[in-house]
Computed example of a mutant assay.
Amino acid sequence: MNLKALVAVTGKPGLFRLIGQNKGGFILESLDEQKTKSVVNLATTKLATLEDITIYGDDEELRLIDILERIKEKGDAPEPKSDGPTLRNFFREVAPGHDEDRVYTSDIKKIVSWYHIIKALPLFDEDATPDTNGE
């Protein structure tokens, strides 16, 4: 799974592809609509790449990319608008060891919605492992 250019933006729903940078900030393309381009000023907005996001765990933090990979292997995910217990039970399967006191249902909804956005992208099936020969 290669999610390098995919980012979440604080205060904006959905996911974005980082497509460039200019004097005003970063240029992003919405993955939901794939037409909307916006410039995000980093002085007022935070970006997080999906590869860098972690989830609270009981013992150690869980990488979002690993959780998305487990959802992909499972082959099925509930809809983000599913009820809380359905989402929580699903998340227990794909993210065992997550801290249930600090990972809220709203966090799970966001992760499930991100999965539904990216599952059809070609990046989802690309290998993210860097070439060990340095090429």
Rank of each mutant, 00 (worst) to 15 (best):
A120Q: 07
A5K: 15
D99F: 07
I118V: 10
A8M: 04
W114P: 00
E33G: 03
K81S: 14
K12D: 12
P13L: 10
R70A: 13
K12F: 13
D32H: 09
K110F: 06
S38I: 15
L15F: 02
P13A: 11
L6S: 00
G25D: 08
D66H: 11
L18G: 01
A128Y: 11
A5F: 11
V94T: 02
D59M: 06
H116T: 00
G97Q: 04
E93W: 04
I27P: 01
D66I: 03
D101I: 08
P80N: 05
E100S: 14
I27Q: 14
G97M: 02
T49E: 09
N22L: 11
D76N: 11
G75M: 03
G20I: 04
K4L: 10
E51P: 03
A120H: 13
F16I: 04
D125T: 01
L18V: 08
T36D: 14
I108W: 02
V94I: 12
T44H: 10
V40M: 11
T49A: 14
E126V: 01
S106M: 11
S82E: 15
I108H: 05
G97I: 03
I118Y: 00
A48I: 06
G75C: 01
M1V: 09
F16T: 03
I55V: 14
L64Y: 03
A95N: 01
K12A: 12
E61H: 11
G134W: 06
P122D: 02
S38C: 08
P78C: 05
L6K: 02
D125W: 00
R88W: 02
K81E: 14
H116L: 10
L18T: 08
V40W: 10
T132D: 12
E60I: 05
D83Y: 10
K109G: 09
I19V: 15
L42K: 13
D101K: 15
R17C: 03
K4F: 09
K110P: 02
I117K: 00
S106T: 13
T86G: 05
T54C: 08
P130D: 12
K119S: 00
A120I: 03
S113I: 02
K35N: 14
L123D: 15
T45S: 14
L62P: 04
K81T: 14
K23P: 07
L31Q: 00
I55A: 06
F90E: 10
E79G: 09
D59S: 08
K109Y: 04
I53C: 07
V112L: 04
I65H: 05
T132Q: 12
K110H: 05
G24P: 04
I67S: 04
V103L: 06
V40I: 15
K46D: 13
D131K: 11
N133R: 13
Y104H: 14
T54D: 09
A120K: 11
G134T: 04
S38Q: 14
K110D: 10
V103D: 08
A48D: 12
W114F: 01
D66G: 08
D83P: 05
K110W: 04
A8V: 09
D52L: 12
K23N: 13
S30I: 01
G84I: 08
D58T: 13
E29Q: 15
